[in-house]
């Protein structure tokens, strides 16, 4: 009974994680400029791989494994914004422009 429930939960996590990864990839292809693409990669992408990692922990049904999976999840969630922030800052400083649809840029004063 418990094992079946865990299996179902794992299946749900796996499917939603993969769906988020796919959505992030579609966003990466479709969005118009670097900064908007970063939105897709840093949010949906992180959540996608984080959910898949969590699925491993749930599937194993062992506490140490779950703890490690959780540690990995937190690690991804904490590093993703840092790298996105660094990259956005570097790109803007060097002079990558926002796309033409952009309506304001307070940094270019």
């Amino acid at each position: 009974m418990i094992a079946g429930l865990l299996d179902l939960l794992t299946a749900l996590l796996v499917l939603s994680g993969a769906a988020f990864a796919l959505v992030a990839a579609i966003g990466l292809v479709r969005l118009p400029d670097l900064y908007t693409r970063m939105h897709a990669a840093s949010k949906a992408g992180t959540v996608g791989s984080g959910l898949l990692l969590l699925a491993v922990g749930v599937h194993s049904a062992e506490l140490p494994v779950l703890a490690r999976a959780l540690a990995g999840f937190f690690f991804f969630v904490l590093t993703a914004p840092v790298s996105a922030h660094l990259l956005a800052m570097a790109a803007h400083k060097v002079g990558y422009r926002l796309c033409e649809q952009s309506i304001r840029d307070d940094m270019n004063d």
Partner: peptide
């Protein structure tokens, strides 16, 4: 975090990309 991933998801699969991005 959950809300944001969901929002990106709905945004990306929309047909028309009517974005108004910017830096404030």
């Amino acid at each position: 975090l959950a809300l944001s991933a969901w929002k990106v998801a709905t945004l990306v699969v929309r047909r028309d990309m009517d974005l108004k991005p910017g830096i404030f």
